[in-house]
């Protein structure tokens, strides 16, 4: 799976499932949690999604607001471990 596909899958998932606003044009650098777009509960859900969709396991120390707040950060973290 290439980066672009991963990015768009993540964007679609975050806006539709976590933000409940599928039409929202989420920017790559927008703070999803610090911007109040979704609750910090959603971090845990994102971890489940990433594992199911891309087979990438993100360990607990990496599941923090500081490390997973923007689409760019999340994509980079997935790309690091994708096989």
């Amino acid at each position: 799976m290439d980066e672009k596909t991963i990015r768009e899958k993540l964007r679609a998932y975050i806006t539709a499932d976590l933000m409940r606003d599928p039409d929202y044009p989420l920017g790559d650098e927008e703070g999803i949690i610090t911007g109040g777009m979704m609750d910090s509960f959603a971090l845990a859900e994102l971890a489940v999604f990433v594992e199911n969709a891309f087979n990438v396991y993100i360990p607990d120390p990496d599941l923090t607001v500081a490390k997973m707040d923007t689409l760019n950060q999340i994509v980079a973290r997935v790309m690091r471990d994708i096989k």
């Binding site: 933000m19 929202y24 927008e30 610090t34 911007g35 109040g36 979704m38 609750d39």
Partner: peptide
Amino acid sequence: TSAVKLTVAQSTTVTVTYV
């Protein structure tokens, strides 16, 4: 829409889902 969500997040302990 973003400004509304951000302002609520910064001012309260909750997040607005639907605006």
